[in-house]
């Protein structure tokens, strides 16, 4: 299933946030969206997940317009992990993860299939031992895992994550990215907004770079992660190399 957007424009309070952009995402791959603050990354994600209606243009899943689907159907197709981890009531972890089944479950609670999906999601994110814990008593890293499990529990065809690494230490960053990678390997589409260029270079299959509401570059990682494109996108000079064991390193060295 292909997720694509065509001539997408979005205006907020008279300011152009997205300026007639088009593109598409492949399932089975991790696409990382890069770009400076205010480049329009989060706005693109909210259009792709159907939260915002673009001023013009359209988002399509295969050949169906995203906004023609009802909320529940859309929720089964596209899972969104919003930027800020938001947990307002001190409910237990199992309940939080269970909320991810809302697009699937009927009015009167969860089916056996729902419980299975919740168990699988908690397994995949190592949350099983947290199941009875209260969500607000968790550490930042644990909360990140639980909220990821919540999205995974919905088993969406497309998983959209907005800066899932914010406030995570390096070990937990690897954990989250590894899980997203596994999800893509299972044939689902994964789209992630990141700010860490090294992590992007390491985990992305494809990279899309945004600047001022437009798409500066998009394509396979090696074609897009170049010093030239990064300089244009962020206004910084970057050095691109490899670690002793062969992983890519992308280090910003100075402002241009």
């Amino acid at each position: 299933m292909l997720l694509s957007f065509e001539n997408l424009s979005l205006t907020l309070r008279g300011r152009k946030i997205l300026d007639t952009i088009s593109g598409q995402f492949q399932p089975g791959r991790v696409t990382v969206i890069l770009g400076a603050n205010g480049a329009g990354k989060s706005s693109l994600l909210s259009c792709l997940s159907g939260l915002r209606e673009p001023k013009s243009g359209s988002v399509t899943l295969d050949d169906r317009a995203l906004l023609s689907l009802n909320g529940k159907k859309r929720g089964r197709m596209i899972g969104l992990l919003p930027q800020r981890p938001d947990i307002h009531w001190n409910v237990d972890v199992r309940t939080i993860v269970g909320l991810g089944r809302l697009p699937h479950s009927g009015r009167w609670g969860m089916s056996a299939a729902d419980h299975d999906a919740v168990a699988r999601a908690m397994e995949a994110t190592d949350c099983a031992d947290l199941a009875e814990r209260k969500a607000m008593r968790l550490s930042g890293g644990e909360q990140g895992r639980v909220l990821l499990a919540r999205v995974l529990a919905g088993e969406p065809q497309w998983l959209l994550a907005d800066e899932p690494l914010a406030s995570l230490d390096p070990a937990h960053q690897f954990d989250v990215l590894e899980r997203l990678k596994n999800y893509a390997a299972a044939g689902k589409g994964v789209i992630v907004v990141l700010h860490d260029l090294t992590q992007a270079a390491r985990f992305a299959d494809d990279i899309m770079v945004m600047k001022e509401g437009a798409i500066l570059a998009a394509g396979p990682r090696n074609e897009v992660m170049t010093a030239d494109i990064m300089a244009q996108a962020y206004g910084v000079e970057v050095q691109i190399g490899t670690s002793d064991t062969g992983e890519p390193l992308v280090v910003p060295v100075r402002r241009l």
Binding site: P82, D86, H88, R150
Partner: peptide, 13 residues
């Protein structure tokens, strides 16, 4: 669903 904030709730339909 609102426990997870408005965006998450809306994304779940």
């Amino acid at each position: 669903a609102l426990t997870l904030g408005e965006d998450a709730a809306r994304s779940m339909g």
